[in-house]
Design a protein around this nucleic acid. Structure first.
Length: 416
RNA sequence: GUGAGUGUAGCUCAAGGGUAGAGUAUCGGUCUGUGGAACCGAAUGUUGGGGGUUCAAAUCCCCUCACUCACCCCA
């Protein structure tokens, strides 16, 4: 029979890796509420239009990478490739803008993109992120950037770099793009084939090219920060100033562009020098037109999204947080029912207990207990039944004591 | 979507045309009221799948699938 395997680009997560996920999730739910973020959960699939309008029809994500399908009523639905558009949609739909203050949300969950898998890239992958609505201050940009950076530090991710740029707004970007296009056309023949196409489709992306020759040439190209309008320029200066208050270092990176069309002004990315080609742990920025474009009020947004799989790759081993485990061993099969009775009473009290119903002798049970990493083995034998006692063996140091059954609760409180 | 590398036991890997093997894990025994060791023994495979060459293919050739990494894209 043919084995059924997980679909390409998906994977199972189980111990010991799952401990890292738990660790990350716990830290996340502890950390971001400090900044007044509240968790929001949105559907995993949405109408395709949400992403077309939100992310932009010209982006790679929308054009090539979405999992889109029709449901039985012929609706066009898409497995969400990112979460910002959904959060905005949810906020508009539920009129959260009039109810919840401050307007800050964080999310965590699976996203889907039809990409070719490689290190740090999956078709079902997981992101967490935050969104701040209705705050146009440069200081909030700095705070969001700080919190994302500091969170990575907090969970001990090392060798990370913060890259910062401004991508301008609808007032200054067109002018910049015009200049960029003219300049790149002049040196078109020297650029790689892909970049030649980008001149007309999305010239900003030329800065993304990893071809050394292209990098060299595009270094001479106009930089967006030199073309920012007064408002964007001032905003960017203020962001940098505010970042210095938070005392974090950043690289000004004029080549940094974002792949989703909704970004305006501040754009940032945190990379790890220890990852492979997919080195962006987290990225985000300001999006001042998205809410309006999705039919909401004319209010601004700022946020980031982080790739959990990539962060997990950079996490040191996390010990599985576990309660002390008790193994109940019976001397012989007829005593198994007594063991079950004892186990039930312990489960009822909330303890972590294991009984093996298949091992007939004590030796094997102890061996198994040892292998599982049990802390204490309770032994029930004929002597114990007669004396109404329980023998308790510490699996860590070989010591064994026998106590009366009525002393068990006291023992549990002191030792477990 | 393009390219490269790799597919052999649950796991890590040998065998490079001539009987598919080791380590480890698993199970049993030495040891029927006492675990971490040791020793002895057992079980485990359509060599990813299909086709071809050959007296003979894990090994050579073709196709296909999967995984990995890179391009691309992004988190």
């Amino acid at each position: 029979m043919k084995r059924i395997i997980a679909p390409k680009g998906t994977k199972d997560i189980f111990p010991p890796e799952i401990a890292k996920w738990h660790y990350l999730e716990e830290k996340l739910r502890d950390y971001f509420p400090r900044f007044m973020y509240k968790e929001i959960r949105t559907p995993i699939f949405e109408h395709i239009e949400l992403f077309q309008r939100g992310i932009g029809t010209e982006t790679e994500v929308v054009q090539k990478e979405m999992y889109t399908f029709k449901d039985k009523a012929n609706r066009d639905l898409t497995l969400r490739p990112e979460n910002t558009a959904s959060v905005v949609r949810a906020a508009i739909e539920n009129d959260l803008f009039n109810r919840v203050y401050p307007l800050r949300f964080f999310y965590i969950g699976p996203m889907f993109r039809y990409d070719k898998p490689q290190k740090g890239r999956f078709r079902q992958f997981h992101q967490f992120g935050v969104e701040v609505f209705g705050d146009e201050s440069a200081q909030v940009d700095a705070e969001v950037i700080y919190s994302s950076y500091d969170f990575l530090k907090e969970i001990n991710v090392r060798d990370i770099q913060l890259h910062l740029n401004s991508v301008g707004c609808e007032n200054c970007r067109p002018n910049f793009l015009k200049h960029l296009r003219t300049e790149s056309e002049k040196r078109m023949k020297e650029l790689c084939v892909d970049c030649q196409k980008k001149i007309y489709t999305n010239p900003l992306r030329i800065f993304d090219c990893k071809n050394l020759k292209c990098i060299e040439i595009s270094n001479d190209f106009p930089k967006i920060i030199d073309y920012l309008c007064k408002e964007c320029g001032t905003h960017f200066e203020e962001v940098k100033e505010a970042l210095s208050i938070f005392k974090i270092k950043f690289n000004l990176n004029p080549r940094l562009v974002r792949g989703l069309d909704y970004y305006t002004k501040t754009a940032f990315e945190i990379t790890s020098s220890q990852l492979g080609a997919q080195d962006a742990l987290l990225g985000g920025g300001r999006y001042n037109n998205l809410i309006k474009e999705l039919g909401g009020a004319d209010i601004s947004g700022m946020g980031f999204a982080a790739g959990i799989e990539r962060i997990i790759l950079q996490l040191d081993d996390v010990k599985h947080k576990k309660d002390k485990m008790i193994f109940i061993a019976y001397q012989s099969l007829p005593l198994m029912n007594k063991a079950i009775q004892l186990a039930k009473s312990l489960w009822d009290k909330g303890y972590c207990v294991y009984v093996d119903y298949n091992l007939k002798n004590l030796k094997k049970q102890l061996k198994k207990a040892n292998k599982i990493g049990i802390d204490y083995t309770f032994i029930i034998g004929e002597d114990e039944i007669v004396n109404e006692s329980i023998s308790i063996k510490s699996m860590k140091n070989y010591e064994q004591i026998t106590i009366k059954q009525e002393e068990l609760d006291k023992w549990l409180i002191n030792n477990i």
